[in-house]
Design a protein around this nucleic acid. Structure first.
Lengths: 193, 193
DNA sequence: GTCTATAATTCGATAGAC
DNA sequence: GTCTATCGAATTATAGAC
């Protein structure tokens, strides 16, 4: 029996507030990293009081943790022709990064993982749970063990230089140019001679 | 045997203190990024008082700036056989990163560039002034313009995953395995079909 | 040249009114 | 559920003694 949530619309309002906080948090964490985003700023962006953030998420670390939830949504590589796997991967990550919604979450993860231990651990988990198995399914376990890391390095290197550092030499390229330039490179890693 | 000799215009003590501060600063900035390193901690590492840091470097931002100075020491690629350029680049960065002295400075730059605007601008400068010209000298200006960014993405992706994130799938590889795995990939970017 | 003491901020977190 | 007020801790930066 619930005693204190009988107020009509209370659920809706709190859910909306919570979602607004989370959205603002992802934006801030993604733009400035963990240390430089303040609860005060997140609350201000969400148009509410800082104490509400504490009420809904407990503390800064738990808010951060909530903002880190992410699914790479990798496609099933076993149904992709072998010589198209590299291109499929590049295109998938480009689309994920260019799309605002997932982009924010991915930016949070990558930017924070560099300076925050907890986010770094999350990054390890996500790659171990999502990228490594996807590659193992098509490369076999022993080749994947030696190559999954290098593939990750290349895909994250793209994200790093294009979306975090925004190196002009990388942001100047179109998605098609990146796909054409990087797919053969990743193919070279996936198919050692 | 130490002896007080009179040197006209040099103060060895202050230079040594300054160097100790800079060394400690690079270590802290490299390990934890800009926001999380405190002047107090740097001073403590250097075995001196926090106010000395202010005396020698003015403020935290200027100390940071001093710690960012770096020369990639890229070899002259024009004297390297065309099909060895990729491998030369991979090996050079691996050596730079694995070596403690340069590794610290590179770590500072890369880790900080992700969350600090000033460091990001420095990263842009360094790649524009050192990497881009080295590639332009061997690829020609128009091909270099389209490929220098992707090569940078690959090399920085390696640094990111191996030395910053320390993804197990990447740290588990030996330098030789990385060289053998990544050189063909970079060659694929440098020599489009 | 080096250190003590402290001013001035900023921020995370709590208590409590409505 | 939301906000006001504030505490306590940490940090940059300054002033000045020795």
């Amino acid at each position: 029996m619930r005693q204190e949530t009988e107020i009509p619309n209370a659920d809706k309002r709190s859910e909306r507030t919570k979602a607004a906080i989370l959205r603002a948090a992802r934006e801030r964490f993604g733009a400035h990293g963990y240390e430089r985003t303040t609860i005060r700023a997140v609350a201000s962006d969400a148009g509410i009081d800082p104490s509400m953030v504490m009420r809904y998420f407990g503390n800064k670390a738990q808010l951060f943790d909530a903002a880190l939830a992410i699914d790479l949504l990798l496609p099933d590589l076993t149904s992709v022709p072998a010589d198209e796997i590299a291109r499929t991967l590049v295109r998938h990550f480009l689309e994920r990064w260019e799309g605002d919604l997932a982009g924010d979450a991915l930016l949070v993860l990558l930017r924070s993982a560099v300076t925050n231990e907890h986010a770094g651990a999350r990054m390890h988990e996500i790659f171990a749970a999502q990228v490594a198995p996807a590659l193992a399914a098509v490369l076999g376990p022993e080749l994947a063990a030696r190559r999954a890391g290098l593939v990750s390095a290349q895909l994250l290197g793209l994200g790093l230089t294009r979306y975090l550092l925004r190196l002009p030499a990388v942001t100047a390229l179109t998605p098609d140019e990146i796909e054409d330039g990087l797919a053969p490179a990743i193919r070279a890693v996936l198919e050692p001679k």
